[in-house]
Amino acid sequence: MVQTPGEEAANPADDPTYQHFVRLIVHSEPAIRRFIRSLMPSEVGVDDLVQETALESWQKFSHFLSTRTEEKEEEEFLRWALTIARFKVMSWQRNRNRDRMVFREEVIEALAETAAASEPEWKEELAAVESCLQSLPPAQRRLLLAVHRSGDSVSRIATETGTPQRKLYAQLYALRRILLDCVQSRLRGPLAHE
């Protein structure tokens, strides 16, 4: 996953700095990925940007090490990496604003702020989605999962099942709304009734 530019060590795995970096990046990678996706109009390009961010983080890792405070290293690293990610996303979209629908710079700025702030809640959110998903009838649950599985798409499922796309989207949106409502109410749930 990370292409090290390390020159000193013949085998980078032996480099303690590199091992340090790997530990941090492995821990942060899912959050970086979610953050990048939040600033992108679709999945397209997200993988590449995660790679680029990781690479640049490694290239500038010594700078990070010189400025960090010891205590909350993981949190600090993530914050730092997200800043790098944000610039990567901006330049990616700047380079493509002629040939496809991308976000304007001011949109990315606005989204970045909100997206970074909500990151710490991810685990709770995921748990809430999972339990809300369990409360759906099995058929609806399977439909939702099938549609969101990487590599699958509504249009493919529509074609293969002979369902009009419009209809499938309408079902999908209704199900997502229900789920979102459930997740929101779970996250705001009462103190006394966990």
Binding site: E125, L126, V129, L144, L145, H148, S150, L180
Partner: peptide, 10 residues
């Protein structure tokens, strides 16, 4: 984020 969670779960 809901769709991200769904993708992750899926």
């Amino acid at each position: 984020r809901l769709t991200q969670a769904l993708t992750e779960l899926a």
